[in-house]
Write a protein that binds this DNA or RNA. Structure first.
Lengths: 200, 200
DNA sequence: ACCTGAACACCGTTCAAGT
DNA sequence: ACCTGAACACCGTTCAAGT
């Protein structure tokens, strides 16, 4: 049977989830698919492009509809969905972060656009809306990479889990950092667009 | 002559500056130092530790004295110094970002402490001051990794430089994102500590 | 059009043995 | 204490040749 792009990406995602990013190599992936390493290069120009496709697969659940929510909830929901998506796969934050930095994730760009639209709604103009969106992405990816590496570190040490109905500490920390950005944006929006003021 | 840790780090930094992070390998470094690859493992446990030492070398100029400046300038100056330091070495942002994520840079922790102190001065308590400091670092590292990869991309294409006495666009964008965080922090500080209010 | 086989030019890390 | 030599177990990528 022939090799198709979605099958390759699925197999790559499976290696990621079961063994982590260090084991996601072209040779290992080829072995799993019962093809020679060179075969992958018919479908993908290089490893970066393959990883970008895996990143976009991870981010399928990260694109949420936020129309009509108001800019605050739009930002909160988009960022929460992004965080949840990357945390739900082994080394997902690291992979998406690297693919974003390499300019290989179309989906991150899509999320960036959504966030920029929300920033515009908050009163940021043109360039500032883009800067705001990028700042939000830097925050979410930086936070989640950190969060995920800590998790995996003390998954070995197996700390007492402390689960409850309450928000976990990391949830609160995530919300706090995000609130700094959102409140800062509100200040800027109010300064440049007094009509809207502190509404929403 | 014997191999000493600072010499190894200097040689590694030289490779980084002249050839980039992809060429900073243990074997290449050993070749440059006229030793066998195994020799490096007498002085450093592994590559991560070596890279952490290089990161700390890059960050020597990133630790600035901000006592008595007030929390806004303290944050602005610390972040500007961090940005300048990583941008002054080829792939410096990527290296420092990776070393920070791997928990191998003592200097980033030091900067983190400074930022947390400034956040406390702004009215953030305990955990929130730490969260604020981490958020600032995520921002600066995310921004600079992006900025540096764009620079290197169009260093090949050699776009017209557009240098002038004016602030460059990236300087303004950096300041804008940072102002979101600073203004957000001011809102939180004012909310929890009405006495200080909007001073500083 | 799609894939194999084999090569090219590398990696990080370990470790017995030397001095 | 510090380093060599050599090995182990891999990498990403290319490309003539096959079907």
């Amino acid at each position: 049977m022939q090799l198709h792009k979605p099958d390759v990406v699925d197999a790559a995602a499976a290696i990621l989830d079961n063994y982590g990013i260090a084991d996601l190599t072209m040779r290992r992936l080829a072995r799993e698919l019962n093809v020679s390493p060179g075969a992958l290069y018919w479908h993908f120009a290089n490893k970066q492009e393959l990883l970008g496709a895996v990143a976009d697969r991870i981010l399928r659940s990260a694109v949420v509809d936020v129309t009509g929510l108001g800019w605050r909830r739009a930002i909160q929901d988009s960022c929460a969905a992004l965080r949840d998506a990357v945390l739900s796969h082994t080394d997902g934050a690291e992979l998406v972060s690297a693919s974003f930095a390499a300019g290989q994730s179309a989906t991150v760009v899509q999320i960036l656009d959504q966030l920029a639209a929300a920033a515009a709604e908050a009163g940021a103009h043109g360039d500032d809306a883009d800067s705001t969106a990028r700042t939000l992405i830097y925050y979410v990816l930086g936070f989640t990479v950190d969060e995920q590496s800590r998790r995996q570190w003390d998954a070995a040490g197996a700390l007492p889990d402390e689960q409850s109905v309450l928000m976990s500490d990391t949830d609160r920390q995530f919300a706090f950092g995000l609130s700094l950005l959102i409140d800062g944006l509100a200040v800027h929006g109010a300064a440049h667009d007094p009509a809207t003021g502190t509404a929403n």
